[in-house]
């Protein structure tokens, strides 16, 4: 499930709250919703909040990689925040901490 928060006063900041699981069964629909929000709101900063994400598989990580790539190509600031331990382990297993975080650790809000 997704919840979007759009703060236009702050230069168009979009926060995407991901709730539940992010797996191969739902990444396609989640991606569509996020991309739709990208087009509608044209943010200059995107934050994916994983505080309510309970589980993630490699399809979920792949989605984060693709979102990161899309944001970078449009010069949009991209951040992932509040992953729980399980999600953190999956991202570490794919050795993508550096790419998805930049500084080697997740930015806590």
């Amino acid at each position: 499930m997704l919840k979007f928060e759009h703060d236009e006063s702050n230069g168009g900041k979009l926060t995407v709250h991901l709730k539940g699981s992010l797996t191969k069964d739902n990444v396609v629909s989640i991606r569509k919703e996020i991309e739709k929000a990208f087009f509608e709101k044209s943010p200059n900063c995107v934050t994916i909040d994983l505080s309510d994400a309970t589980s993630m598989d490699t399809a979920g990580v792949a989605l984060l990689v693709i979102l990161c790539r899309i944001c970078k190509s449009r010069d949009i600031n991209f951040r992932i925040v509040n992953p729980d331990d399980k999600v953190r382990k999956v991202i570490r297993l794919a050795q993508l901490e550096q790419l998805l975080l930049g500084n080697g650790d997740f930015n806590d809000q």
Binding site: K24, V27, V28, R31, T58, A59, A62, L63, I66, L96
Partner: peptide, 12 residues
């Protein structure tokens, strides 16, 4: 899954 997600997963 779309082909780009599959490609990223395969690379991983």
């Amino acid at each position: 899954l779309t082909s780009d997600i599959i490609d990223v997963m395969v690379e991983m």
